[in-house]
Amino acid sequence: MKGIAIAVALFGVSSAFAQTVSPAPTPEHSVTGNLGVVSQYVFRGLSQTDGKPAVQGGIDYVHSSGFYLGTWLSNISWFTDQNAGVKNAPVSLASPGSVGAPYTAGASNSASLEWDFYGGYKSSFADEWTYDVGLIRYYYPGRFDNLGAYRQPDTTEVYGAIGYKWLTLKYSRGISTYTFGVNESRGASYLDLTAQIPLGESGFGLQAHIGRQNYSGNANTGYWGASGGNNNYFDYTDYRLGLTKEYYGFNFGLAWSYANTRHTAPDGNTTAYMNAFGRNIGRDRVVASVSKSF
């Protein structure tokens, strides 16, 4: 189209002729990739790297009919962090439900990678409305010798989303036996509303988000015991506000997030979102990012 505009300016090509040029057809198959670095990996308001940087990337395949498949990876530390404890001392992970189990000498848990696989169907209708349905598997390859009162973190969710222009409402529901290591957690859900608003012609974009994570109220006595807590102590709301800017083909971002996650159960000892280093992995977070799509 830029070439057509030049031709119009230089050779007086009529606007009627210019309008007959059709845009290139949408390819039947397309494959794209992305690679990025973040100052810390924050997922649904929770730090997955205890405030440390992460390298992330993925590949997506899209068919012109709307069906898609993809995979995405990031380094993490929340599962391995449990080994920071001392023998018989309560230690925890940066994930719900994976906390409070004693460290056992000679046993270890380690998972330094999150590897996601997903697929679904996305299409549009009416005027600038979209919908998206699919399934995602969060896979954590590693060693799991000391599971204690929690479970292996691999998680499967189904999701559905509806969007209008720059606004998207999405609902995700866990269908695996455990959700991110939480015992008795099948059916855990996450509902989020996200806005991606372009700021005129500046190249800047505004991001605003609110999400609600809910777990069933099952007692999960194997974990909570007599602490006075249940799986509702893993429920929380998270918020995010950020700016993005595309510059020389790279996408830069800066965002603040907050999750009102509980530190512990009422006994003050059985941890909810407090990790092995005594830090709540929700609460206030600031994330800087740079990524490239290709």
Rank of each mutant, 00 (worst) to 15 (best):
G3S: 13
L10M: 10
S14K: 02
S22D: 06
P25R: 02
P25H: 00
T26N: 10
T26S: 09
E28T: 10
H29F: 07
S30K: 12
V37A: 11
F43P: 01
S47M: 05
D50P: 03
I59M: 15
S65V: 09
G66N: 02
S74L: 04
Q82T: 08
A84V: 12
S92C: 05
G97W: 00
G100W: 01
G100N: 00
T104Q: 14
G106W: 01
S108F: 12
L113Q: 14
F117N: 04
S123E: 07
E128I: 07
E128W: 09
V133K: 05
G134M: 06
G134Y: 01
R137Q: 12
A149C: 11
Y150W: 12
P153M: 04
T155W: 00
Y164E: 06
L167P: 04
L169N: 08
L169T: 03
Y178T: 11
T179K: 03
R186E: 14
G187A: 07
Y190N: 15
Y190G: 04
D192K: 09
L193C: 08
P198I: 00
G200Y: 05
E201L: 14
L206C: 08
H209L: 13
G217S: 14
N218T: 09
T221Q: 11
W224C: 03
G225Q: 09
S227Y: 05
N231H: 03
F234N: 15
F234I: 09
D235E: 12
L241D: 09
T244M: 03
E246R: 14
Y247C: 04
Y247K: 05
F250C: 05
Y258Q: 13
Y258C: 13
N260D: 15
H263F: 08
D267M: 03
D267P: 02
N269Y: 04
N275P: 08
N280S: 06
N280H: 04
I281K: 01
I281D: 08
R285N: 15
S293L: 04
